[in-house]
Computed example of a mutant assay.
Amino acid sequence: MTDPLSEHRETCVVLGYGRIGRRVARALAAGDNGPVLAGVVARDAQAVAADPAVRVFADLDAALATAPDLIVECASPATLAAAGSDILVAGVDLVALSLTAFADPAVEARLREAADAGPGRLSIPSGAAAALPLLRVARKAGIEKVRFRQTYLPSHWAKISGETDALQFTGSFFEGSVRAAASRFPFNLNAAVGVALAGLGLDDTTIELVGDPAIGNMRYALDIESLGAPIRLDIGPYRDRPSEGPDHTAYSILAMLAARSDAIIF
Results as ranks from 00 to 15, higher is better:
129 A>V: 15
169 F>M: 08
159 K>P: 03
156 H>V: 14
113 E>C: 12
158 A>P: 06
118 G>A: 14
137 V>H: 09
137 V>Q: 09
178 V>N: 03
133 P>M: 11
168 Q>P: 02
174 F>I: 01
118 G>N: 06
160 I>N: 00
120 G>E: 06
109 A>C: 03
172 S>D: 11
190 N>I: 00
126 S>T: 15
128 A>C: 10
153 L>W: 00
186 P>F: 04
118 G>V: 15
113 E>A: 15
171 G>H: 10
145 K>V: 03
198 A>Y: 02
173 F>A: 01
155 S>P: 04
153 L>T: 12
132 L>G: 01
124 I>R: 12
129 A>F: 15
190 N>C: 14
153 L>K: 06
135 L>N: 11
115 A>S: 08
176 G>L: 05
123 S>L: 15
112 R>H: 09
115 A>M: 01
118 G>E: 10
174 F>W: 02
137 V>N: 12
176 G>I: 08
154 P>E: 08
116 D>E: 15
153 L>I: 04
112 R>D: 13
180 A>Y: 00
160 I>H: 03
155 S>L: 05
172 S>C: 08
156 H>M: 13
198 A>P: 07
196 A>I: 10
146 V>Y: 00
129 A>D: 06
178 V>E: 02
178 V>W: 00
198 A>I: 07
131 A>G: 05
125 P>W: 03
176 G>A: 12
131 A>F: 07
170 T>I: 04
156 H>I: 10
134 L>N: 04
174 F>D: 07
131 A>D: 01
187 F>V: 10
180 A>C: 02
122 L>W: 13
152 Y>M: 05
178 V>F: 11
149 R>W: 09
179 R>G: 04
170 T>Y: 06
189 L>N: 00
124 I>L: 11
168 Q>M: 15
182 A>G: 11
146 V>C: 02
171 G>F: 05
159 K>L: 13
137 V>C: 07
111 L>R: 04
162 G>N: 08
146 V>S: 04
189 L>S: 01
131 A>V: 08
148 F>S: 02
173 F>C: 02
131 A>C: 15
195 V>N: 01
142 G>Q: 10
150 Q>Y: 10
130 A>K: 13
198 A>F: 10
113 E>W: 09
137 V>D: 00
121 R>N: 05
192 A>I: 05
168 Q>A: 14
139 R>K: 07
123 S>W: 15
144 E>M: 08
133 P>S: 09
195 V>D: 03
144 E>R: 14
148 F>H: 06
146 V>T: 12
130 A>N: 12
183 S>L: 14
171 G>Q: 02
135 L>T: 04
170 T>P: 01
177 S>H: 07
175 E>S: 14
192 A>W: 00
178 V>H: 02
163 E>T: 13
108 E>F: 02
166 A>G: 09
146 V>H: 06
180 A>R: 13
155 S>H: 04
179 R>K: 05
115 A>G: 08
130 A>E: 11
147 R>D: 01
159 K>H: 08
113 E>T: 14
127 G>D: 08
196 A>E: 11
185 F>G: 00
120 G>M: 10
182 A>M: 13
138 A>Y: 01
139 R>C: 01
183 S>G: 15
140 K>M: 12
119 P>V: 06
195 V>T: 09
116 D>F: 11
135 L>D: 06
130 A>F: 04
147 R>G: 03
143 I>G: 06
182 A>Y: 09
171 G>I: 09
163 E>I: 05
134 L>R: 15
